[in-house]
Design a protein around this nucleic acid. Structure first.
Lengths: 349, 349
DNA sequence: ACGCGCTGGGAGAGCGCTCTCCGAGCGTGC
DNA sequence: GCACGCTCGGAGAGCGCTCTCCCAGCGCGT
């Protein structure tokens, strides 16, 4: 065992020698390309087993120009430099992240591909990620880009790296993307609140630098306007639970008679719920709360959140599929896949 | 721009020709090895800029035997095959996962290394991961192995792949690992509950196939026994919120006069809290609840959870550092870094 | 003036694989 | 019986880089 571990790893050459054939033949057997005489195949397989041969993927990548890795880039707005805090803490704590990862794995499962994670939360990190990709460390990139001003998608496009985005960029690029019809999601929330007879409603939006946040808010506003409600208190949040608490508290202070709240994600809705509980407001009797995402946060507390579902896993899986398709057919034109939000009615509204 | 994109990527050779030097010199400049005449250095830099040269990492890996990637393997017990469900959904939904990722990034931040994610939740996936690692796709592996019977750590050891574990294996292997003193954590929970005057307590443990879960429970039991409490209702959970709800409901049914509960993680504690709220039990007045982890779930609902803190981010960062150290000094002996749990006192107990 | 050490650039041998050619061997059709 | 095509193995040329040699040139000591 230890003597095996010490000597250098066996190569194609070794296998070929043991099997009494050429390197090319061994390669053919391994890659299942062209017909190879069954007897020889068997001999090669035995030689592989005997030598404990494992192909070296660097050597293979060098010639095939494929790495077997796909980058999953989380490209956020620049994170504040809080030295005592951990890198990307807030991003990774959001259930959204886990759902994306889960969806990516679902899309990748049948294949021999693995996602390499990159965090591009600063100009420096972004450059590093770009360099990494340029060096050919991954065959393509999936980018969850939150902020509108994020230059990364355009840079990837310019660098000729196969890329698919989660979320449409603010200005159309010829890159494929998957996204939710966020505006429609906002409308759904508004319609539901209105149908429940709520007229003194407010919104806790996400950061307005994020397109999805803007779209949800404007959809909500539009639909409310359609219902004759033009006065709409609004607080901008940052998608964290803490900020949802802060926003709800502020809203409650300024508009004590609110009877409905739309939060742009479940985490903030959950924060709102906690603050409402502290203020002894009954949900949904006194005030209805509707969230967005249908993440695990929706059913974490009581009451369970009524929410606008964003099928993140499906979207991430689709993003992966689209990227694989681009890899398989390099010429393919960029496509946009838009998912439809749906209302998940639970207890809070 | 497009003409740039079309022609093949420039190589060291191209840069060398443009700069009027040899490949070796360009390589030296890029890697900053040995002295190179400043004038030549400058010429090389210009040539690099002019040609838009980016080193090909496959070629580099082939000779250096380094890839610049570290595997982060989530090796769980075999996941049930639920076709409609998404891969690893539960694992990735757990805040624990995000915290590990965050810690890994913290440990990796200054370096040009990226984590590649692998999910080994079935024998097949485990084999794939092992093969991937054997092929040299990553320089080393960090393994979050939950289940006791997981053969992966031993396999990695046998394959000679530099590996660090999050969580000690059931039988000691000569692999480095970082872990929490879970037994002590259980004791801390018990001591606190006892100090609060709770005598009719129960435990919601994690899956007993997981060493950490067993240790937390036995530490809790031991300390309770020290306090003269030998009768200890116990329900085994699976670390999910839903299971925490189920466990709490079952406990409440069987032992209606409980005045204290220890849950082996915050997610289950959160579930317990929700069920207690539904049963109109006041926390902590009627029944005290203490969680474990100090994850974001601890402050998600109301009341905030009193919990035993596990510094997951620090542990993951340390795991990364230990792996890097093993990579830098191949001969290094395996070490175990044990972290101490601390009590975080909030409202629930 | 000569030798010696030292600095710094060039040549070239790989690293381990894939893949295009080439050619041997065999079967087939007329 | 011969030309032709077809199948399948081997030879060998790279893929783009690193790194060990080797050697030219220079400064220094004697």
């Amino acid at each position: 065992m230890s003597s095996e571990a010490l000597k250098r790893a066996s190569t194609l050459e070794d296998v070929a020698r043991v099997a009494g054939v050429s390197r090319a033949t061994v390669s053919r057997v391994i890659n299942g390309v062209r017909n190879v005489d069954p007897a020889i195949q068997e001999a090669v397989r035995q030689a592989i087993a005997r030598t404990g041969y494992v192909p070296n993927s660097a050597a293979r990548s060098l010639v095939t120009r494929r790495t077997g890795a796909l980058a999953l880039v989380i490209s956020g707005s620049d994170a504040p430099e809080t030295p005592d805090h951990h890198v990307g803490g807030e991003i990774f704590a959001d259930p959204f992240f886990g759902r994306v990862v889960s969806g990516v794995f679902t899309g990748l499962r049948p294949l021999d591909l693995h996602p390499v994670l990159m965090l591009a939360d600063s100009a420096e990190a972004r450059d590093k990620a770009l360099t990494y990709l340029r060096q050919g460390n991954a065959d393509g990139a999936m980018v969850v880009s939150t902020h509108s001003r994020d230059p990364l998608p355009a840079q990837l496009l310019a660098a000729g790296i196969p890329t698919v985005l989660f979320g449409r960029p603010p200005t159309p690029l010829s890159l494929s993307c998957v996204d939710l019809d966020n505006r429609e999601g906002g409308r759904i929330a508004a319609d539901h609140l209105h149908a429940r007879g709520r007229h003194r409603v407010a919104a806790i939006s996400g950061p307005l630098g994020v397109r999805a946040a803007r779209d949800r808010l404007s959809g909500f506003r539009e639909a409310m306007a359609d219902h004759g409600i033009h006065q709409l208190p609004h607080v901008e949040g940052d998608f964290t639970r803490e900020d949802g608490e802060r926003a709800m508290a502020s809203l409650l202070r300024r508009y004590p008679d609110l009877d409905g709240v739309f939060a742009a994600n479940d985490l903030m809705a959950q924060g709102a719920l906690a603050v409402l509980a502290e203020h002894r407001r009954r949900v949904p009797e006194d005030i209805a709360v509707i969230g967005f995402d249908d993440s695990s946060a929706a059913t974490a507390g009581r009451p369970h959140l009524t929410t606008v579902r964003q099928p993140v896993e499906e979207m991430a899986a689709e993003m992966t599929r689209v990227l694989l398709d681009h890899l398989a057919r390099p010429g393919r034109a960029a496509t946009t896949v838009l998912f439809e939000p749906t209302l998940i009615e639970r207890q809070s509204a």
